[in-house]
């Protein structure tokens, strides 16, 4: 009971501390913006640990964070092999292929107004469908190894990126295009100097959506069959053995991979679209 009481006290303390910072004079400073979420996160972890220990929650329901951390530290080789299989081979390969194909298709589609008016609604429609469902079919076609996972990822990221790129390539105004024409710019000059840069914020929006989809696709595809490694395989196998600390360790890896992947794409976006109002704020 002591631990539960301690957890409640800690929760109150953390909340009070954040209240002081948020209402204080330095609330807008960079340090405060960083400190408040970090304090919140740390308090949540501590309360989780104390409650699990205090209430003696069985491992099968919820392992304590310390146990998960120990599991992560203890099985780094397995986690690394799973990460390579699922993220680098499955998700990343599929992401690169899918996004490249989508952008090239968008450039082709953009050349014809008729095609664009046909592709945009169809693409929007398909982008809202549960494409993960194609996983069993693609696993059947491409085998259990990472190729089928990459194929699922390609199918998942293709349409969001396609739709965003096609929409982005329309972003220039008639005035800007007329200016290029008065310079006697060729199609490709206009494309590379005006329309592609103008489309970049949209393309990166699609690319950022696709990062999460890529990981989801690679993990879920492994539920339909995989070699004996990979994050999705480990999750479903460990759930079967009720070793939930291993499941949580994989989830930690997946969360880190997803966040870093997204962060990297956002960094590239920042460098490429430095001129856009949303990046100058």
């Amino acid at each position: 009971m002591m631990l539960v009481a301690l957890a409640l006290v800690l929760w109150g303390l953390g909340w009070w501390l954040n209240l002081r910072i948020a209402e204080g004079p330095h609330a807008q400073s960079r340090a405060a913006r960083l400190a408040v979420p970090l304090i919140f996160g740390a308090v949540v972890l501590a309360v989780w640990e104390l409650l699990v220990r205090g209430l003696q929650v069985p491992l099968v329901i919820l392992p304590a964070p310390s146990l998960i951390a120990a599991r992560v530290a203890g099985s780094l080789p397995i986690l690394w092999a799973d990460f390579l299989q699922t993220f680098v081979k499955g998700a990343l390969t599929g992401y690169v292929i899918g996004c490249t194909a989508a952008i090239l298709t968008a450039v082709l589609v953009d050349r014809s107004d008729f095609l664009r008016r046909g592709v945009l609604p169809v693409g929007n429609f398909v982008a809202a469908l549960p494409i993960v469902g194609t996983a069993p079919i693609l696993v059947m076609w491409f085998g259990f190894d990472w190729q089928s996972k990459a194929a699922v990822v390609v199918a998942m990221v293709f349409f969001p990126v396609l739709v965003n790129t096609v929409a982005g390539l329309r972003e220039t105004t008639a005035m800007q295009r007329d200016l290029m024409r008065t310079y006697a710019a060729s199609y490709w000059q206009e494309f590379f100097k005006l329309r592609l840069p103008a489309a970049m914020p949209f393309i990166f929006n699609g690319l950022k959506i696709a990062t999460t989809l890529a990981l989801v696709g690679a993990i879920v595809a492994e539920f339909f069959g995989s070699p004996t490694l990979g994050m999705g395989f480990r999750i479903s196998a460990s759930v079967g053995q009720l070793s939930l600390d291993m499941v949580w360790a994989e989830i930690v890896v997946a969360a880190l991979a997803g966040t870093v992947f997204y962060g990297l794409v956002a960094l590239v976006e920042k460098a490429v679209t430095f001129w856009h109002p949303s990046q100058r704020g």
Binding site: L215, V216, I219, I235, E250, I251, A254, A255, G258
Partner: peptide, 12 residues
């Protein structure tokens, strides 16, 4: 949390 493949939690 939007960048995390939350669906990995489903089996658990």
């Amino acid at each position: 949390s939007q960048t995390i493949p939350i669906i990995a939690l489903a089996p658990m």
